[in-house]
């Protein structure tokens, strides 16, 4: 994860739940490449075709509510979404996104300062999101060190892999 994340913004409304991100009928799909064709099919149908790696999602309150389906952030990761910034998140989505290495940033008031397609600049440790077109910005409490560490590792898989390896080393077992 970089200290500064920049990208083009896609805006979404409030209460975008996981059914609107990936509908129930796609839940038996495991392949992220296949999943990403259906991401935001209900909430923002033009996204799946138009989005490119590095794009940033800016949403209103309660983003990702509803089911625990990891398909939602997985599809976003397959697209290469650079970050998701929202006025607020539902808890499981927030955890899932961070665990997959997607910066999820809760920044009160962020939705109001962006329009579709605006360029955004996020300073992770300083805790600032700026609309580069208008110069307007909102501040947010930076993520706790524990979560920044997870993002730095590239997600939970890599983090646990390192922890398990360290544990084996400590135990003197061949790895």
């Amino acid at each position: 994860m970089h200290e500064v994340i920049e990208g083009r913004v896609w805006t979404l409304g409030r209460d975008v739940d996981t059914d609107q991100i990936i509908s129930g009928k796609y839940l038996t799909i495991i392949d992220p490449e296949e999943l990403k064709k259906h991401v935001f099919e209900i909430a923002l149908p033009e996204f799946a075709k138009g989005a490119k790696a590095g794009d940033i999602i800016v949403a209103d309150e309660n983003f990702g509510s509803g089911s625990s389906r990891e398909h939602a952030p997985q599809a976003m990761r397959a697209i290469g979404v650079g970050a998701v910034v929202a006025d607020s998140f539902a808890r499981i989505f927030f955890r899932n996104a961070i665990n997959l290495g997607i910066p999820a940033i809760e920044a009160r008031g962020v939705r109001a300062i962006f329009e579709m397609g605006d360029p955004a600049r996020i300073e992770m440790r300083a805790g600032r999101v700026t609309n580069v077109r208008t110069g307007r910005l909102v501040e947010f409490p930076p993520l706790p060190p524990h979560l920044l560490e997870l993002l730095d590792a590239g997600g939970l898989v890599e983090k646990v892999r390192r922890d398990l390896e360290a544990r084996r080393h400590a135990a003197g077992a061949p790895s």
Binding site: S68, R69, E70, P73, I92, R95, N96, N99, L100, H146, G155, L156, V157, V160, D163, L164
Partner: peptide, 18 residues
């Protein structure tokens, strides 16, 4: 509480979660 599958993988491996 509910968690996602990647997090569940960590729980299966370590028996712990934050």
């Amino acid at each position: 509480t509910g968690i996602g599958p990647t997090e569940m993988a960590a729980v299966l491996a370590l028996g712990r979660l934050w």
